[in-house]
């Protein structure tokens, strides 16, 4: 009897966490999937079962394919550039130099500041008439006239997307750099000494020693970034609202917009997003053979 209770003891300790995950994570997923098969109007009333109509309508939206392709581009570009820059930054912050402590602290600022705030600051800085970016570019002669097409970076879908990717990289750098930096600090000095004795140049030891040993850290940083960036919302919402039309929308922005008129179809979009993230993560994990790395 007592033995049986003892066996159950861990469950007792775990139950709050399990309950929390069940209520906060699993239950919403169940409701989400359920909603995606129901007809729900803009006022949130469930009209009834809708079969797969929400999905069919979603796939037939004229902007659906372009929104998806843009989302893929957004994720690949933002995460790719973030990881590359962070590798460099982590290397830099791993060196000894005066003021290292202060600069390491300073790196936290883009992460600590509200993303919405950061997005708004960039939006104002890019104002075609009075934005500080344009005023500087005008003074040095890059922007010929303030208030012109050329100065309206956020009005043109291509340049708007590039600027917003820049902001997304900016806010993703701190976390990624810290993750890689901790990875770097975990690599033992002995390995480098051994490499040096074997005659490895610094570039070679970076490629053959640092990068392979850093792979677990890169793996985790990339995965977390992919999920974050895929679902990223405030930057695009504040800077262009996905416009003109849907030409700077990613699937998350598109889902929010759908929600105004059709909650069911918006739920279908969310389910699709959810599956897409899972697929991307699984493909990434299998190609990087994560078990050998992390396990």
């Amino acid at each position: 009897m007592i033995l049986a209770l003892r066996r159950l003891a861990p469950l007792m300790w775990l139950s709050p966490a399990i309950a929390l995950i069940g209520v906060v994570v699993l239950w919403p997923v169940v409701v989400l999937v359920q909603s995606s098969f129901q007809q729900i109007g803009g006022e949130g009333f469930v009209v009834g079962y809708n079969g797969t109509a929400n999905y069919v309508n979603l796939f037939h939206e004229p902007d659906f394919v372009s929104v998806l392709l843009r989302t893929v581009l957004w994720v690949v570009a933002v995460v790719g550039v973030t990881v590359l820059l962070s590798l460099g930054l982590a290397q830099l912050f791993n060196q000894r130099f005066p003021g290292r402590r202060v600069t390491r602290w300073a790196l936290i600022i883009p992460w600590a500041a509200s993303v919405m705030m950061t997005a708004l600051i960039f939006k104002w800085a890019l104002d075609p008439n009075v934005g500080v970016v344009n005023v500087i570019l005008h003074r040095i002669g890059v922007v010929r006239q303030l208030g012109s097409n050329q100065a309206d970076w956020l009005g043109n879908p291509t340049s708007a997307l590039i600027w917003m990717m820049g902001v997304a990289v900016f806010v993703s750098l701190p976390f990624t750099t810290y993750a890689l930096l901790s990875g770097l600090q975990g690599i033992s000095r002995d390995v480098y000494e051994a490499a040096a004795i074997d005659g490895a140049t610094s570039w070679k030891s970076y490629l053959r020693v640092t990068l392979p040993l850093l792979r677990p850290a890169i793996l985790v940083a990339t995965l977390i970034n992919v999920i974050n960036v895929f679902n990223s919302f405030p930057i695009i919402w504040e800077m262009t609202r996905g416009g003109p039309g849907y030409e700077t929308s990613t699937s998350t922005i598109y889902m929010i917009d759908l929600k105004e008129s059709d909650v069911g179809q918006a739920a279908a979009m969310s389910v699709f997003n959810f599956l897409l993230v899972i697929v991307i993560v699984l493909v990434y994990l299998s190609t990087t053979r994560w078990k050998e790395q992390v396990g």
Binding site: P128, G147, S148, N149, A151, D152, L154, G155, N156, A160, T240, G243, P244, G245
Partner: peptide
């Protein structure tokens, strides 16, 4: 070019 640039935004 007689309006502000990119009126749709």
């Amino acid at each position: 070019g007689d309006t502000e640039p990119n009126p749709g935004t």
